[in-house]
């Protein structure tokens, strides 16, 4: 009975590919859709042998009973998910919503900044601020025009929307910090900045607002195992304190966070991660070679191959 419960999994109901590395998954979990608040994250396990990876909730739909995750395929697990997570497939594990929800205070004017994989999770915050009656300036950063997504969703909840691209193919040429500087220059009364993205970007954002002393909240995503405050792997230095991002965060005051420490700790498992990715890619190459051979073979061999594949995914 227990086995059944554990193996049931969480169904993927929608998928959208934004680019060759960025993809969106909408997963059915009515209870979580009801409970989720901006700023929270989930932990996903693709299959029984998988690792637990934290992902910030990019959106939730209480009516449809789903949560949305936007994922960048960078390592073994996220690349494997990119292959395996088609509509109808199931995630072995999905737990959350985790972390303290973002505090949507009484700020009257806010800048919501998203860069790279942080563009999606900044969206629920921008929407929440808009719903609270604030004037919302959205700043998002992409490498180039083709990678831009959710522009319509952002425009619907932002009073001003600034797109920054590395190559200037759309919007401002430069990093999101350029967008922040522009917004600060035109508005002298900004109460708060919220930034989500890679650590180096959040560090830049915190530096960009430090001089003007604008409260800047950042969402940290360090290496985690359980996400419930039990392993301490996600500890971060904030001011003179050590905090666990999973239960004390994930939002912290960007001016207090020691980003260099965070970035060093994110490199903890680089050799193992690299080895896992190489090994997996090699196995993918082998499999495609086998598939290529089978295409020319008899129907029997092909169906045997399909059988083997389905055992693997189980």
């Amino acid at each position: 009975m227990q086995e059944m419960k554990q193996g049931a999994g969480f169904e993927i109901v929608k998928r959208k590919d934004f680019s060759d590395v960025t993809y969106l998954l909408e997963v059915r979990h009515p209870l979580m859709a009801k409970a989720a608040k901006p700023g929270q994250f989930v932990i996903v396990m693709l299959h029984e042998h998988g690792e637990r990876i934290p992902l910030t909730i990019a959106d939730f739909d209480r009516g449809r009973g789903t949560i949305t995750l936007v994922i960048q395929a960078v390592g073994k697990t996220t690349k494997e998910m990119q292959q395996a997570c088609q509509v109808g497939a199931r995630l072995y594990g999905l737990v959350g919503p985790m972390g303290i929800p973002s505090h949507i205070g009484k700020a009257k004017k806010v800048i919501c900044v998203g860069g790279g994989l942080g563009v999606a999770p900044i969206f629920p915050q921008a929407r929440a601020y808009k719903e609270s009656g604030a004037y919302v300036i959205g700043v998002v950063g992409f490498r180039t025009r083709d990678l831009v997504f959710w522009e319509d969703k952002f425009r619907a909840c932002c009073d001003e929307f600034i797109v920054c691209t590395d190559d200037g193919s759309v919007g401002i040429k430069g990093l999101v910090t350029e967008g922040i500087k522009q917004a600060i220059a035109t508005h002298s009364d900004i109460d708060e900045v919220v930034a989500i993205g890679p650590p180096v970007m959040m560090k830049g954002c915190a530096e960009a607002t430090r001089a003007a002393r604008i409260k800047t909240m950042v969402s940290l995503n360090p290496v985690m195992v359980d996400g419930t405050g039990m392993c301490g792997g996600c500890r971060v230095k904030v001011g003179d304190k050590v905090m666990f991002a999973c239960v004390d965060g994930p939002d912290f005051d960007g001016h207090q966070v020691d980003f260099d420490d965070l970035m060093a700790r994110l490199r903890r498992f680089v050799p193992a991660e690299k080895a896992a990715l190489e090994r997996w890619q090699e196995s993918c190459r082998m499999r495609s070679r086998i598939d290529a051979v089978e295409t020319g073979a008899t129907d029997d061999a092909r169906s045997a191959g399909a059988g083997a594949q389905s055992t693997r995914t189980n």
């Binding site: 227990q2 209870l31 919503p97």
Partner: peptide, 10 residues
Amino acid sequence: FECNTLVGRL
């Protein structure tokens, strides 16, 4: 037994 359930948050 209901796994994957974080009581308090879910």
